[in-house]
Amino acid sequence: MSYNTSRTVRWIRFFIAIAIGMGLGLFYGWVINPIEFTDTAPSSLSIDYKADYVLMVAEAYQADRDLLRARERLAPLGGASPSQIVLQAILSAEPHYVERDLEIMRQLQSDLQAQEQGLESPGL
């Protein structure tokens, strides 16, 4: 084997070693020891947890009927309007939640939407 051929083979092996190392690194970084997020906000919760968060807000609202406070409690879930947040939660929860829970979420969503529509058209 000529010197050049041997050198090429070595480079190829070198890059194969790098590729194998990258695979090992990715496996370790994504599967074995994925990065731990701390100090996150509710907006980053998965949709299931968001739905449960909304359900808790709806339960609290059912007890105190304080729509302003319900809005404040929903605010950390993100930038969408509160009624939109609750609607998304209802849609994701519908296949899994019992009707009673869905009902109080719908009640909250309805009240929020009514208030938002009232704010958008104060003259009506």
Partner: peptide, 29 residues
Amino acid sequence: GLVIGIALGLIYAWLINPLDYQNTSPRSL
């Protein structure tokens, strides 16, 4: 080569493209 590859893999997995940040659980709040 293996060490360089592992380092690149970890940089990508932990810094460039970590696991989906949008699906956290309440414990990370």
